[in-house]
Design a protein around this nucleic acid. Structure first.
Lengths: 343, 343
DNA sequence: CAATCCAGTTGAAAGCTTTCATGGCGCGGT
DNA sequence: ACCGCGCCATGAAAGCTTTCAACTGGATTG
């Protein structure tokens, strides 16, 4: 029942025209005080709720922004979502969070969902490396901002975190603490971020006058705890065991920590660990984990703001210029990498 | 440009009427083969994307279901969302996930968002205990299903997990392992779930012929890791230290574990731990955590299905009957509670 | 006093889809 | 040969909001 109350009913009840009701709601300053007063009470009385779909239909686009992430279960993306949501809300938009599960087919499905919704734009972390997804968004005229990726051309915005700097931070910290024999648990070698973090690590190594062989690499299939456990086991089996390990990801680091704990290796005394991402559970580990913090919330917020800027087109304002924003990570030192004290 | 292609343009391009295009899209079997063939190519050629808002406007309701949770950061709700999304997608609906952050004001804001969207219904975990939120949903005629709560009357569906049974599972396990001096890290005493888990624990205790004083209670302000760390410290300070601790929540358990580790108390040998929720990181802890698993994905899926059933009204089908579904939790035994072996 | 102007209000049009009553056409039955 | 029926296609109407040109009535200006 209440569903079918329209602006027309409100107008009748308040004794004004539909245009006036709309004005009271959207531009109250254009309505005379006495008239303005009558409308809200009618709205209240009838339980009127305006229909978003009718607004959208009229406006030609919705008040929603899409966020397409690789993995809802990853705390990093949860933070990105938080940031995006905050920024969007400030502009009166909602965020529709979708989970591609790193799957191109799902991605395509969400693309058409977004297109049908006439979404304002999408914050996107593409799953496929081929650029096909990006091309599809472009073909459909859906504005987007790359998240946690770097734009290749100048035809889109991107917000990412400097992974090379992050890798360097981590390794410099370990080298400064006196470690000379190190390992890198790297995850799948195909990932850009994994490679960049490695590059940064090697840079820091070179800075310190150490050779590449001071950093032994342990690749894994995936970026999860089980893979970390496995890498930890391999680490323990290494001849001439390193004294510190840098992991491409906190999940890997937690897995390594687990393997070390089970084997009775003390952290940080026997082996120091540094992770990456500073997820909430890094601080919650039995030995709180030193980690490279990515400003995920800021990243999400910034991406949303760029999208809004691209999208809002304030009348005569200058055309939007696409930007590549690169944020700096930060090292959060916790117990897992403290310089060993006398036990 | 492509945005402004409407069904009318497609009709013209294909040489048919708008009604026919609509039929080809929505009820292909009512269209003769030869005609049906001409439309898709026109759609393709023009890049037509149908406007969801126009559909909604016509239909009077959207194809979206809301999910309003207490905390997006809590892995339990992430799983609920996953389940709900899967079930909704099978019915061709989308899910809009919102985060009330346990805040009644946010909740109210989302309520009006849902109302304006003419959402099909909402899966709801109310933040306020007063029932005001529920009343508001009812007033707005928005169907809802309670998630992780038990419906009080018979005027709504609810899906929850049997917390009394869960508490009993946990405690029975510890008692069976020979523990006679136990503790319960309970979280805020105001929460129903915390109370139910306690009730179950006490039941199990009684079953085993032990008195209530065998279970010392350690309340905390919140249900997070920091609170757990604090409770762990208190636990260590107890005279006549218990040999096992049951935590109302995995986050608390991780905090306790951290405190124990820092103090050099061996788990499970000196102290066994059982958590609750079986979040992903329970298995990832340095000592993998025994935990009571809630079927969160199932819970989300079931809730979504109930909402769909309530909402779909298949023509002459019988009226929807509200149901209270209570799922059973399951104990996942891991190292943190294994019976102590010779060290 | 007439011409302007202004603030405030009005109602129709546009935006796009789905639905449905209508009508055309061909075919089978009488 | 005619009737009726079934199959398909058609186009108008409905669904609700926002916007805007047009209008009203009263005040200001020349």
């Amino acid at each position: 029942m209440a569903q079918s109350v329209g602006i027309k009913d409100v107008a009748r009840a308040a004794g004004v025209s539909v245009g006036t009701v709309s004005n009271v709601i959207n531009r109250p300053d254009t309505v005379a005080g006495e008239t303005r007063a009558r409308v809200p009470s009618a709205i209240e009385r009838l339980g009127y709720v305006r229909s978003e779909s009718a607004r959208q239909l009229r406006a030609g686009r919705s008040r929603i922004m899409g966020l397409l992430v690789l993995d809802m279960g990853n705390p990093f993306f949860v933070d990105v979502a938080r940031g995006a949501e905050r920024a969007a809300r400030e502009a009166g938009l909602g965020v529709m969070v979708c989970n591609s599960a790193q799957n191109a087919a799902e991605e395509a499905e969400y693309l058409s969902l977004f297109a049908e919704q006439r979404v304002r734009g999408v914050l996107l972390t593409p799953a496929d490396a081929t650029g096909r997804t990006i091309a599809a968004f472009r073909r459909h005229n859906i504005p987007f901002v790359l998240v946690d990726r770097v734009a290749e051309g100048t035809s889109e915005c991107s917000v990412s975190v400097d992974d090379v700097a992050g890798g360097a931070l981590a390794l410099r910290h370990l080298v400064d603490a006196g470690h000379r024999s190190l390992a890198y648990v790297s995850g799948p070698p195909g990932l850009n971020q994994v490679r960049d973090r490695r590059t940064g690590a090697l840079n820091a190594l070179a800075e310190a006058g150490l050779g590449q062989d001071a950093l032994r690499e342990l690749p894994t299939e995936r970026l999860d705890v089980a893979a970390g456990r496995d890498a930890g086991a391999r680490l323990l089996g290494l001849a001439d065991r390193p004294t510190a390990v840098f992991c491409a990801n906190d999940l890997l680091a937690l897995g390594v920590l687990q393997a070390l704990y089970a084997a009775g290796v003390a952290v940080p005394d026997d082996l120091a660990i540094v992770g990456y991402d500073d997820i909430e559970f890094a601080a919650a580990a039995a030995v709180p984990l030193t980690s490279v913090r990515q400003p995920a919330v800021t990243l999400g917020a910034l991406a949303a703001e760029l999208l809004l800027e691209e999208t809002e087109r304030h009348g005569g304002g200058p055309a939007h210029e696409h930007r590549r924003v690169v944020l700096q990570p930060e090292l959060v030192v916790r117990r897992s990498s403290l310089v060993a004290r006398c036990p």
